[in-house]
Structure formats: C-alpha cells, structure tokens
C-alpha cells in the first residue's frame, strides 16, 4: 500500500500587515497529497502537538496565508503536516514562530479615514457588485470626497476603475480626498488597504497637495472584488493587499490637505479603506 507522507521541511515565514505567509518544500505527487494541514498556537517558540483544536487551515499548495491577524501584529508558532490521498498523516514539521507586521492602523492615531479597515468593501458606495454605476455617476472619471461632509456609502465608490477596464471607458480614474488638519502636522503614515485587484495589476499614483508622494505597483489580484465584497469569508479568494507609505510632517499643512489616488495603469482596485495616521 502507499506510504505515509514525508515530514514537511523547509518551513519559512514572510510577514506583512494582518498576515503571516508560510511556505515549505513541496512533497511532490507520490503519494498524492490531499492537502497540507497548518497548525498554530499563539505565542513564540513554543513546542506543541498538532490537534484538531489548533488546526488553522488546510491548503493543497505548499504555501499558506495566515490571514485576518490583528493590525497591531500577532505572534504565532506554526507546524505543518501533510495528509495523503489515502487519508494518512505525515509527521509535522518543526515549529516556527513569526509575528505579523504591525500596521499604522493599529500603532498610529487616526487623523482622517474613509471606510473601515475590516477586509470588506461593503460600506462603500455601489458595493458589493454595482460597478456599472460608477462610470454613470462619475463620467469625468473623478471621485471627490470631503472629510466631514461625505460618507463612504454616499460618495466613495467601492472600486476605483483603471485604464484596463473597458466597462468604465478605459480611463484613468482619480479619487480626490480632502481633509482638514486643525493643529500642526506631525510625521504620519497613509494606510491604503485593498480588498482585491484585477489580474492586470497596475500602478496607483499617490499625490499629496498636488505633488507626488509615491507610486504603488499593484499586484495581480483575483479579479473578484468587483462582485464579492467580503474577503473575511472563509475560503474567500479575494486577494487583499496593504500599502502604508510614510508622510513626513513637512508634506502636510494646517488646514485643508488633499490626497489624490490616481489609477494610472491596469485594472480596478477594490477599496477596503484609506486613512492618515499620526505616528505615536
């Protein structure tokens, strides 16, 4: 009869905001691996026995994203084992610990935000699937949002279309977000969280008060955020991504500030939320 799967080796981690990505050496196809089982417990450097209670995910790939972690960062210790086509379990890998990258959403003080940093587009206008309305309501390809006056549900469409989107007229869309700073500016960070992008990827230019702040290379996504609004549903294939460029104090000013988000290349982005956070 077929043998048990081999022990999983080469377990590595890669940290990002709200996510620790694990990868390991593939065990190949003999025996065929039904899936890998990822077990985890909170805390660092702990040895533990894999049980059903600490199973955090199954994956057919030699890769797993431990998602939905606290934006402040979470530390977990992982062990991975394989289950074969016959239902046999291999021995677990050695334990490996990792802490997800803390986000400014957790470490900073919110100055102004559009939406909730929750993995969903749902609070935004036309979400989760009314994208066809966006070019109708924004024929000039400009979204205007004034903090305090507008709300995400009335003025911030859940997608920002790009030149790769024929349904939106293949235009460069821009979202212009204006907010007031009452006191003296301090060093801050801009949090830009996306629920999904398209298979085209793209380039999102970020301008602050009329001049370039940064240019973000967008990864290829699942192209599903135009029709599904919740990346936290178990098994969701939406591909969240996070960008948190720094904003030095001297780039901000007391009174009105305008952040402009310009989708210069590629297909749409689906917003989770954007926000300015002052550093502690």
């Amino acid at each position: 009869m077929s043998q048990n799967p081999a022990v999983v080796t080469g377990l590595q981690t890669e940290q990002s905001i709200t996510r620790t990505t694990l990868s390991w050496r593939s065990l190949g196809f003999e025996p065929l691996i039904d899936h890998y089982r990822v077990h985890a417990v909170r805390g660092a450097e702990r040895d533990f026995e894999p049980t059903e209670d600490n199973l955090v995910g199954k994956t057919v790939y030699p890769r797993f994203e431990h998602d939905g972690l606290d934006p402040l960062g979470e530390t977990w210790t992982y062990r991975v084992l394989a289950r074969s086509d016959a239902g046999r379990l291999g021995r677990p890998s050695r334990p490996v610990s990792a802490t997800s990258t803390p986000s400014v959403v957790g470490t900073g003080t919110p100055v102004a935000v559009v939406g909730a940093f929750d993995g969903r587009t749902l609070e935004h206008r036309f979400a989760p699937a009314g994208y066809a309305q966006i070019p109708v309501e924004h024929p000039d390809a400009v979204v205007e949002y004034v903090q305090g006056r507008d709300t995400p549900g009335t003025a911030w469409p859940y997608l920002l279309p790009g030149p790769g989107d024929s349904w939106a007229g293949r235009k460069v869309y821009r979202a212009r977000w204006t907010f007031e700073l009452s006191g003296a500016p301090t060093d801050s960070d801009l949090a830009i969280w996306l629920v999904d992008t398209t298979r085209l990827g793209g380039v999102l230019q970020v301008l602050l008060n009329g001049s370039a702040l940064t240019s973000i290379e967008l990864p290829a996504g699942a192209t599903r955020g135009s029709r599904e609004g919740d990346a936290t549903v178990p098994g969701s294939t939406l591909r969240r991504c996070y960008f948190e460029p720094e904003v030095p104090a001297d780039r901000l000013r007391t009174g009105a500030n305008t952040v402009e988000l310009v989708l210069a290349e590629g297909g749409w982005v689906a917003w989770d939320a954007v926000g300015l956070f002052a550093r502690p």
């Binding site: 691996i33 057919v60 030699p62 290829a220 996504g221 699942a222």
Partner: peptide, 14 residues
C-alpha cells in the same frame, strides 16, 4: 487568478 504555475500544479493534480 494570479498564482504561479509551480503552486497551481498541486491543485491541477488533485
């Protein structure tokens, strides 16, 4: 859907 062939092969196999 934006995944490397090397990873996707595991899903194809099952």
């Amino acid at each position: 859907y934006g995944m490397s062939d090397e990873l996707f092969a595991h899903r194809v196999a099952v």
